[in-house]
């Protein structure tokens, strides 16, 4: 048997080498484009190049002077936060019957609820503008938020449904048989297990709304410029390196948020213990 065991060990090593190679390759692949943009944003030159022509913070300085960038970034943050909040409520609720329920047309409904992701968003942008104009609604931030909700709610539904599909129904039965009522079961047993799925969906939803150009291009009123629209103006006729600097700032903020989230989650674990 030693040969077999040796073969097993070789197989074991091969397996982990393969996993690590693919995983590190994947990480590099995810990282590289953003890295290039961030490095290029430090260029001292007049236009965006890689490698950068000298290093400077001039495009970040310019960014700080662009008041409209700050205003539009703040607006995008508000729109994305509001849209995500609504989408999470609608999406999490819808996920339960879509996974657990038994009713006619459930599969069709399940597929239907994905259609906002499948349709190129310019089609929805056009359609939503026709609709809003026809019923005489003025273009405003709430209208923009609702149109974002329509295109981001599928993320929440899908990721929550995936978590729910993996949740052991025995867990709930156990909780119920131990005397917990429906709400208590939901809050103490179901929700904590679904939280990663909901958080993932919310993150996708938030970023998609924050980054949405096409729908906003059609549904943002004249004084409701969002960050992607501003970015578009900065790149479209002339690639302003400050646009790359915006990406660098977003990367920095996200890094802070991830750290903070980690710290907060760690903290809740400590408290629960």
């Amino acid at each position: 048997m030693p040969a077999g065991r040796l073969g097993g060990r070789v197989g074991h090593v091969t397996f982990w080498v393969a996993i690590w190679t693919l995983a590190l390759g994947g990480l590099l692949y995810l990282l590289l484009p953003t890295l290039i943009i961030v490095v290029a944003s430090f260029t001292a030159g007049e236009y965006i190049t890689f490698p950068p022509q000298g290093l400077s913070l001039r495009w970040f300085t310019r960014l700080m002077a662009l008041a409209e960038v700050r205003v539009s970034a703040w607006r995008s943050l508000i729109v994305a936060t509001a849209a995500t909040a609504v989408a999470v409520v609608l999406g999490v609720a819808a996920a339960f019957p879509l996974v657990r329920g038994r009713f006619a047309g459930r599969e069709a409904l399940n597929a239907f609820l994905m259609s906002p992701l499948i349709l190129p968003s310019l089609v929805y942008g056009l359609a939503a503008l026709m609709f809003v104009s026809a019923i005489g609604l003025p273009l405003s931030v709430p209208v923009l938020v609702l149109s974002h909700v329509a295109i981001i709610v599928p993320y929440v539904i899908r990721t929550t449904a995936a978590s729910l599909a993996l949740l052991d129904p025995h867990l709930e039965e156990a909780a119920r048989s131990l005397g917990a009522n429906a709400w208590k079961t939901f809050l103490r047993v179901i929700l904590p297990n679904l939280l990663p799925g909901i958080a993932t969906g919310a993150a996708f939803a938030f970023i998609s709304s924050f980054d949405n150009l096409t729908v906003s291009l059609f549904l943002a009123g004249p004084r409701v410029e969002t960050l992607p629209i501003r970015l578009f103006a900065m790149i479209n006729f002339d690639f302003d390196p400050a646009a790359a600097a915006i990406s660098a700032v977003l990367v920095l903020i996200t890094f802070a948020v991830v750290l903070l989230a980690h710290w907060a989650v760690g903290l809740t674990r400590v408290i629960r213990l």
Binding site: L30, L31, P33, T34, I37, A203, F204, I207, D211, L213, P228, L231, F232, I235, N236, A243, A244, I246, S247, L250, V251, T254, V258
Partner: peptide
């Protein structure tokens, strides 16, 4: 999360 933080045009 990185790829999602740069707009498609910048990317």
């Amino acid at each position: 999360l990185l790829p999602l933080l740069t707009s498609a045009v910048v990317r």
